[in-house]
Design a binder for these strands. Structure first.
Length: 402
DNA sequence: AATAACCGCAACCGCCATGAA
DNA sequence: ATTCATGGCGGTTGCGGTTAT
C-alpha cells in the first residue's frame, strides 16, 4: 500500500498546461512566493494538483530558466557528470544554471544515452579483447562493426520507453573481497571514489562501492563498469572526495593485493607466475582534499603526468601544480599494465580503467595497443565529437587498423 | 498522399527523505 | 519515538510532431 495521494485527484485537470493556467500560476507565485504547493492550486484558482503546479513552475515557468538548446559545452558537462554521478539529475542540474533536472534527464535519454550506449558496446568489446590478451591469450578480433543505428526500427507496440531511455544501471558488486568465483584469476577491483558533490553520501557507501569485475563472465553490464565512459562509472559516485582514498587494484592472481587504503595510481612491481605477470602492489596513496567542484569540471586542471615503467607496469603518477591536484590528470588516471603474450615475449599495453575525459583518453591503451597502427588518429581526435558522431563510425574501422 | 515508426518532451506517478507536530 | 504532511527526485507515460517507407 503506497502513500495517500498528494491531493484529491477528483476534478483536477491533467495534461498540458494552458497559457491561462501558466499565467495564473506565475502571478500567484510572484505575489506569494514558492512553497505550500498543496494549498497553492486552490489559492491560485487552479484545478491542478499541487505537485503538478510545482513541476510546472520549476521546469517551465521559473524566470531563471535558460531557454534554447543544450550547448555543446553543456553536453560535455552532462556527460562527464553523468559518468560520475549517475542518474542524479538534480545534482547534475545544479552544475548547469538555468537547466532543470527534468530537462537534463530528457536530454540525456533522448540524445546522449544512445550515443554513450553505442560507444560503450564498442568499448566493451574491445575490453574483452584486452582481457584475453592480458591473460596471455591470443588476441582475436571477433565479428566487428555495427549494424546500423542503435535504435533499430522497432515495432511500435514494443516501444517501451524504458528500453530506449533507461540509463544503464549499476550492478551491485558481485562479491566484495571474494575472488573465489573466478578461477581464471583475473580480477580487477576498483575502489571508486566519490565526487565532491555527493560527499554528503556516506563514506561507508563509498568504501563499499567496490566493483569487482569478473572477466569470467562476459556480461555487458559488468563491462560497462570497467570501460564505460570518460570517467570510471559507479553510478554511486567515484571521483575523489575530501580526505578519501580509493582503491584500484589490478591483480593477475587470486589475491587481491590491497585493501581500502590504496588509491590509484598505485606503484608496484610485476612478478611472474605460471599464468603470466601479475602485479604486486606497493601502495601509493593520494588524497583528494584539494578537490573542489570546480576542479571536477575543469578540463584544464594543472597537473602533469609522470609515467613509470616497471617491468611492464606503466604507472601514471601525479604532479601537482601550484599545489593543486588535478582530477583530470590524476584521479581518473589509469593503471596501464603490460602483459606478456605468452612465449612470444610480446607485450601488450592495456588500460584497466578509463581516463578522465575524452580529450585525455589514451585510446591507444584501450584499442591501439593491441592493434598495429592504432591509436594515433583517435588520440588526436576530439573524442567527444567522435562519440557524438558514433552513429557514423564503424567500430574497428577508425584508426584501429582493423 | 497515407501510414507506420520514431523522436522529443512535458507531465505524471510513486517512492523516499525530511522536518514539524 | 511516532506519525504525517510536504517537497523532492528519478522513472515512466503519453501526446504531438517529424521522418521514413
Amino acid at each position: 500500500m503506497g502513500r495517500a495521494p498528494c491531493c484529491e485527484k477528483v476534478g483536477l485537470k491533467k495534461g498540458r498546461w494552458t497559457a491561462e493556467e501558466d499565467e495564473k500560476l506565475a502571478k500567484y507565485i510572484q505575489a506569494n512566493g514558492e512553497g505550500s504547493w498543496r494549498s497553492l492550486p486552490k489559492n491560485a484558482g487552479l484545478l491542478r494538483c499541487g505537485k503538478s503546479c510545482r513541476l510546472r513552475w520549476i521546469n517551465y515557468l521559473r524566470a531563471d530558466l535558460k531557454r534554447g538548446n543544450i550547448s555543446t559545452e553543456e553536453e560535455e558537462i552532462i556527460v562527464q557528470l553523468h559518468a560520475s554521478l549517475g542518474n542524479r539529475w538534480s545534482l547534475i542540474a545544479s552544475y548547469l544554471p538555468g537547466r532543470t533536472d527534468n530537462e537534463i534527464k530528457t536530454y540525456w535519454n533522448s540524445h546522449l544515452s544512445r550515443r554513450i550506449h553505442s560507444f560503450r558496446r564498442s568499448a566493451s568489446e574491445s575490453l574483452r579483447l584486452i582481457t584475453e590478451t592480458a591473460k596471455g591469450g591470443v588476441l582475436t578480433i571477433g565479428k566487428g562493426g555495427r549494424a546500423g543505428r542503435f535504435a533499430v526500427k522497432k515495432n511500435k507496440n514494443s516501444r517501451t520507453p524504458k528500453d530506449v531511455t533507461r540509463a544503464p544501471s549499476i550492478k551491485k558488486p558481485l562479491m566484495e573481497n571474494n575472488t573465489s568465483n573466478c578461477h581464471n584469476s583475473n580480477i580487477e577491483v576498483m575502489q571508486l571514489l566519490q565526487t565532491p558533490a555527493i560527499e554528503k553520501e556516506t563514506l561507508s557507501s563509498a568504501i563499499n562501492d567496490t566493483v569487482i569485475w569478473d572477466p569470467c563472465e562476459d556480461d555487458k553490464e559488468q563491462m560497462d563498469l570497467v570501460m564505460p565512459s570518460p570517467y570510471p562509472e559507479t553510478g554511486r559516485g567515484m571521483v575523489g572526495s575530501s580526505g578519501e582514498k580509493a582503491t584500484l587494484v589490478v591483480s593477475h592472481s587470486d589475491e587481491i593485493t590491497s585493501g581500502n587504503s590504496m588509491l590509484c595510481p598505485s606503484v608496484g612491481q610485476i612478478d611472474n607466475d605460471s599464468s603470466g605477470p601479475f602485479y604486486q602492489g606497493i601502495e601509493k596513496t593520494l588524497c583528494f582534499d584539494e578537490f573542489t567542484d570546480k576542479e571536477l569540471l575543469d578540463p584544464n586542471g594543472g597537473s602533469t603526468l609522470n609515467e613509470e615503467r616497471q617491468d611492464g607496469l606503466v604507472v601514471h603518477s601525479e604532479e601537482r601544480e601550484n599545489g593543486v591536484l588535478s582530477p583530470n590528470k590524476t584521479v581518473y588516471d589509469s593503471i596501464d599494465y603490460l602483459s606478456s603474450n605468452g612465449e612470444s615475449g610480446e607485450w601488450h599495453s592495456c588500460s584497466s580503467i578509463s581516463r578522465s575525459g575524452f580529450d585525455d583518453w589514451i585510446w591507444d591503451d584501450v584499442m591501439g595497443g593491441h592493434v598495429q597502427g592504432g591509436g594515433d588518429e583517435i588520440q588526436e581526435d576530439n573524442m567527444l565529437s567522435w562519440l557524438w558522431e558514433s552513429d557514423q563510425v564503424e567500430w574497428g574501422g577508425r584508426g584501429t587498423g582493423l
